[in-house]
Simulated scan of single mutants.
Amino acid sequence: MIALSAFAALSQANRLDAFRLLIKAGSDGMAAGEISDALGVKQNTMSASLSVLHQAGLVRNTREGRSIRYFVDMQGLRGLLGFLMEDCCGGNPDLCRPILDDIACC
Rank of each mutant, 00 (worst) to 15 (best):
Q55D: 11
M85A: 03
C88P: 03
I68V: 12
M30W: 04
I103D: 00
A9C: 05
L58D: 01
E64S: 09
F71L: 06
Q43I: 09
R78I: 12
D73C: 11
I99P: 00
A8I: 14
G40L: 08
L22C: 06
A13G: 06
G90P: 05
I23Q: 11
G65W: 04
G79R: 02
G79S: 04
R15V: 00
D87G: 15
S47T: 15
M1G: 15
R69F: 01
R15A: 04
V72T: 07
C96R: 07
S5C: 02
R63H: 11
V72S: 03
A38H: 06
I103A: 02
L95I: 13
S36F: 05
E86G: 05
F71Y: 15
R66V: 07
N92F: 01
G65C: 02
I103P: 01
E86K: 12
L22A: 03
G65E: 04
V41C: 05
D73R: 01
D101A: 09
R78C: 11
G40C: 06
G57V: 14
D101S: 09
S51A: 13
A25D: 09
L80I: 09
K24G: 13
G90M: 05
Y70I: 02
D101H: 08
Q12N: 10
D17A: 14
A13I: 09
Q55E: 11
Q75G: 11
C105L: 15
M30S: 12
I99H: 00
G76N: 00
L39E: 06
R63G: 10
L10M: 15
I2Y: 13
A48D: 03
A56K: 15
L81I: 14
G91E: 01
A13C: 05
N44S: 14
I99V: 07
L39P: 10
M30E: 12
N61P: 00
F7S: 10
H54P: 01
Q55S: 12
K24D: 13
R66L: 04
L53H: 04
Q12Y: 11
I99R: 03
D87L: 05
A18K: 00
L50H: 06
D17Q: 13
L77I: 04
R97Q: 08
L21C: 09
R60A: 06
C96P: 03
S27R: 15
F19Y: 14
R20M: 13
A38V: 07
L81F: 09
G82W: 02
M1T: 14
S47M: 00
Q43P: 11
G91W: 00
D94W: 03
D101V: 10
N44F: 05
A104S: 11
V72Q: 02
A25V: 11
T45L: 07
S67A: 12
A32Q: 15
A32M: 14
A38L: 06
P98L: 13
G76W: 10
K42Q: 14
S11P: 10
G90S: 07
D94L: 02
G26R: 15
A13V: 12
G79D: 03
D73V: 05
G91C: 00
R69K: 13
I99M: 01
G79P: 07
Q75R: 08
G82R: 00
S49L: 02
G33Y: 14
D17C: 07
I2G: 08
G91F: 00
